[in-house]
Lab assay of single mutants.
Amino acid sequence: MDVFMKGLSKAKEGVVAAAEKTKQGVAEAAGKTKEGVLYVGSKTKEGVVHGVATVAEKTKEQVTNVGGAVVTGVTAVAQKTVEGAGSIAAATGFVKKDQLGKNEEGAPQEGILEDMPVDPDNEAYEMPSEEGYQDYEPEA
């Protein structure tokens, strides 16, 4: 019985440690998101679009440190934060509304985080759909 109880105690310690790591990862992701939003706020009209992409990228980098179902929630929060940063930029006159959601080359930025393969159960990952990809044929 002692062996059984000791095993359960060790398992509990492992769960607590994993929860603490997840909590730490979420806190880091939130900190990076805040950094990115402050970065966007300090940019001029020309830099705002690039700044919004930076927020998304920093958040995406930190999301990889967070495991399990938390990833889905962090990704949703990050996307809403990026959308909010863009709205703030438009409201303050840093950028025109028609410039939001495009990178410096004018290509749409939507789907940055949505296409990231995420499995809350950590069982399997699927690649994003290939609808947006084109076949590449090298020139002879």
Rank of each mutant, 00 (worst) to 15 (best):
M1N: 00
M1Y: 00
M1I: 00
D2V: 01
D2H: 15
D2W: 02
D2Y: 09
V3R: 15
V3A: 04
V3T: 01
V3D: 02
V3W: 02
V3F: 13
V3N: 07
F4I: 03
F4L: 09
F4C: 06
F4Q: 00
M5D: 00
M5W: 02
M5V: 12
M5S: 03
M5C: 00
K6N: 07
K6S: 12
K6C: 05
G7V: 14
G7A: 04
L8S: 00
L8G: 00
L8E: 00
L8C: 01
S9A: 03
S9H: 05
K10P: 00
K10R: 05
K12Y: 13
K12W: 14
K12I: 14
E13F: 09
E13Q: 10
E13D: 01
G14R: 13
G14Q: 12
G14W: 05
V15K: 01
V16I: 14
V16S: 04
V16G: 05
V16D: 01
V16Q: 11
A17Y: 10
A17S: 08
A17L: 07
A17E: 08
A19W: 11
A19I: 12
A19S: 01
E20R: 02
E20K: 06
E20W: 15
E20S: 04
E20M: 08
E20F: 14
E20V: 04
K21N: 02
K21Y: 12
T22H: 03
T22I: 00
T22D: 06
K23I: 03
K23H: 03
Q24R: 11
G25V: 02
G25A: 15
A27T: 09
A27P: 00
A27L: 12
E28I: 08
E28T: 10
A29G: 03
A29L: 07
A29P: 00
A30T: 08
G31F: 11
G31V: 05
G31C: 10
G31A: 15
K32H: 05
K32W: 15
K32Y: 15
T33S: 08
T33R: 01
T33Q: 00
K34G: 03
K34S: 00
K34Y: 10
E35P: 03
G36W: 14
V37G: 15
L38W: 12
Y39F: 11
Y39S: 11
Y39H: 06
Y39V: 09
V40L: 14
V40T: 02
V40P: 00
V40D: 00
G41D: 00
G41A: 00
S42P: 01
S42G: 08
K43L: 13
K43F: 01
K43P: 00
K43N: 00
T44Q: 01
T44W: 13
T44Y: 15
T44P: 01
K45F: 14
K45N: 03
G47K: 09
G47F: 10
G47E: 02
V48D: 01
V48F: 07
V49N: 11
V49G: 04
V49A: 10
H50P: 03
H50W: 14
H50E: 06
G51K: 10
V52P: 01
V52A: 13
V52E: 01
T54K: 07
T54Y: 12
T54F: 15
V55Y: 02
V55N: 01
A56R: 12
A56D: 01
A56S: 05
E57M: 08
E57F: 10
K58V: 15
K58P: 01
T59P: 01
T59C: 14
T59M: 14
T59D: 01
T59S: 06
T59Y: 01
K60V: 08
K60T: 06
K60M: 08
E61T: 06
E61H: 07
Q62K: 08
Q62N: 04
V63F: 11
V63H: 00
V63I: 07
V63Y: 08
T64G: 06
N65R: 15
N65M: 05
V66S: 01
V66A: 06
V66T: 04
G68Y: 10
G68R: 15
A69I: 10
A69H: 12
V71S: 04
V71H: 04
V71K: 15
T72C: 02
T72S: 01
T72V: 09
T72P: 01
G73S: 05
G73E: 15
G73H: 08
G73Q: 14
V74H: 02
V74G: 03
V74N: 01
V74W: 11
T75H: 03
T75R: 05
A76L: 06
A76I: 05
A76Q: 10
A76V: 11
V77H: 04
A78I: 14
A78T: 06
Q79K: 06
Q79P: 02
K80H: 09
K80F: 15
K80A: 05
K80R: 06
K80T: 04
T81S: 02
T81K: 05
T81E: 05
T81Q: 05
T81N: 02
V82M: 07
V82N: 04
V82H: 06
V82A: 03
E83L: 11
G84D: 07
A85W: 03
A85H: 01
A85M: 10
G86M: 02
G86L: 13
G86I: 08
S87H: 10
I88K: 02
I88Y: 13
I88N: 00
I88D: 04
A89G: 07
A89E: 02
A89T: 07
A89M: 13
A91G: 13
T92L: 10
T92V: 15
T92R: 01
T92G: 06
T92P: 03
T92C: 03
T92S: 07
G93S: 08
G93W: 13
F94Y: 11
F94W: 08
F94V: 09
V95T: 12
V95D: 12
V95G: 02
K96P: 14
K96S: 14
K97C: 14
K97A: 12
D98L: 11
D98I: 12
D98F: 05
D98A: 15
D98M: 10
D98N: 12
Q99K: 09
Q99G: 09
Q99Y: 09
Q99P: 04
L100Q: 06
L100R: 01
K102F: 00
N103V: 09
E104M: 02
E104Q: 00
E104A: 12
E104L: 07
E104V: 03
E104N: 04
E104W: 10
E105K: 07
E105T: 13
E105R: 06
G106R: 01
G106Y: 10
G106E: 13
A107R: 06
P108W: 03
P108L: 08
P108S: 10
P108E: 15
Q109A: 11
Q109W: 14
E110C: 08
E110G: 04
I112H: 14
I112W: 11
I112N: 11
L113A: 10
L113I: 12
L113Y: 06
L113V: 04
E114G: 11
D115M: 12
D115C: 11
M116W: 15
M116T: 06
M116L: 03
M116Q: 15
P117M: 08
P117E: 13
P117F: 07
V118C: 10
V118S: 05
V118Y: 05
V118T: 07
V118I: 15
D119Y: 12
P120A: 08
P120G: 06
P120M: 14
P120H: 04
D121L: 05
D121T: 06
D121Y: 13
D121A: 05
D121V: 10
N122K: 08
E123F: 02
E123A: 05
A124W: 08
A124Q: 09
A124L: 11
Y125H: 10
Y125V: 13
Y125C: 14
Y125T: 11
E126G: 04
M127C: 03
M127D: 00
M127E: 12
P128N: 10
P128Y: 11
P128I: 09
P128L: 08
S129Q: 04
S129W: 12
E130C: 06
E131G: 01
G132A: 15
G132T: 05
G132P: 03
G132R: 06
Y133E: 06
Y133C: 07
Q134C: 10
Q134F: 04
Q134S: 08
Q134M: 04
Q134I: 13
Q134G: 07
Q134K: 15
D135Y: 15
D135V: 07
D135G: 04
D135N: 10
D135Q: 12
Y136I: 03
E137L: 07
E137Q: 08
E137W: 05
E137D: 09
P138K: 08
P138D: 09
P138M: 12
P138V: 11
E139G: 11
E139A: 11
A140P: 10
